Simulated assay, not measured.
Amino acid sequence: MRTASDTDLDVRREVYLAAALDAFSIGRLAGLPHLSGARCLDLGVGGSAVPVWLADRVGTEGEVVVADAEPLPPGLLAPGRYALIRARLLLMRTPHPEALLRRLAAALAPGGTLVVEDWHLWPDDAVLAAPSARDAHLVDRCLRLLAEQVLPALGVDPGWAPRAHTAARAAGLTTVDTAIHAPVWAAGEPGALLLAVDLARHHRRYLAAGVAPAELDRVRQLVTDPGSGLVLRGHLLYSTCGGAGFY
């Protein structure tokens, strides 16, 4: 049963995601031609401002359809329907991302574009600075548990993103390219605050993995206090873009 606290965490997560990712996503989409009058599908949007930006670009003759997560509404991915489809942090959360990517590609109109954005959660060398070696080890431990145990147990594939390029080509998309956003997050910034949300959302899983309550409190303090001195290499965001051929 979900609680008011769960809802608050979801809202905070959406706000932090938008702050951490929207500028890169919009920059990626800004290079696409011919959006005026287009029909677009934006998936996994949460609190993102990207749909609003897209609506301005497509104008009154276009349309922006939004959906947050699977299961997607029936009929949403009708063949040949969209000039642009963007899926943010969605495929990494599905059991069969390659299959969903093929469905997305099939829903593109001739000449349409698919943009898939997913994190590669790679915990190695993620702590760039910390107040002490003990703090660095503790934060590293929590990040490793997130990538190697917590998220996989929830059906999330932290290693999917590097496979998206090959999967897009296998789905028949052309001119496939991948850009990788490698941010740095200081304590108190939206990306670092996402870790605080994860600690709260998955509190029981961290405890079950052997992290003590006091240790979780310390990590929460480190990531939320701008004066803590903690600096993280953020999750790598893979943005894979491919076009549907004309037929």
Rank of each mutant, 00 (worst) to 15 (best):
S228P: 09
I180A: 13
V219Q: 05
G234M: 04
H165I: 05
L236D: 14
L195C: 08
A187Y: 04
H235Y: 05
A171R: 02
E215Q: 14
L216Y: 06
L193I: 12
L199V: 03
V219Y: 05
H181Y: 13
R201A: 14
T174N: 09
H235R: 07
A186K: 10
D217W: 02
Q221S: 13
A192C: 10
L207F: 06
R218Q: 12
L207P: 09
G191Q: 05
V211D: 04
H203V: 12
L199D: 12
L194W: 08
S228Y: 01
V223N: 06
H203F: 13
Y238W: 14
P183F: 06
Y238L: 12
D217Y: 00
D225T: 11
D217H: 10
R201L: 14
L216A: 11
G191F: 01
G227W: 03
V223W: 02
L193H: 09
A208K: 11
A214C: 04
T174K: 12
L195R: 04
E215F: 08
G188V: 02
L173D: 04
D225S: 10
Y238E: 08
L230R: 05
E189M: 08
T174M: 12
Y238R: 09
T178W: 03
G229D: 00
T174Y: 03
I180W: 00
I180F: 01
R169D: 06
G210E: 09
V176N: 12
T224H: 00
A196C: 10
P226F: 05
R204T: 15
R204C: 04
V197T: 14
V231I: 13
R218A: 12
L207G: 12
T175C: 11
V223P: 05
R201V: 13
L194F: 10
R169L: 14
H181M: 06
E189W: 00
L237R: 14
R169Y: 00
A214E: 15
T175F: 09
V176P: 04
L207T: 08
R205L: 15
V184Y: 04
T224M: 00
G229Y: 07
I180R: 15
A182R: 15
A187G: 07
P226Q: 10
L193P: 13
D177G: 07
A164I: 08
D225C: 06
A171T: 05
W185P: 03
G227T: 03
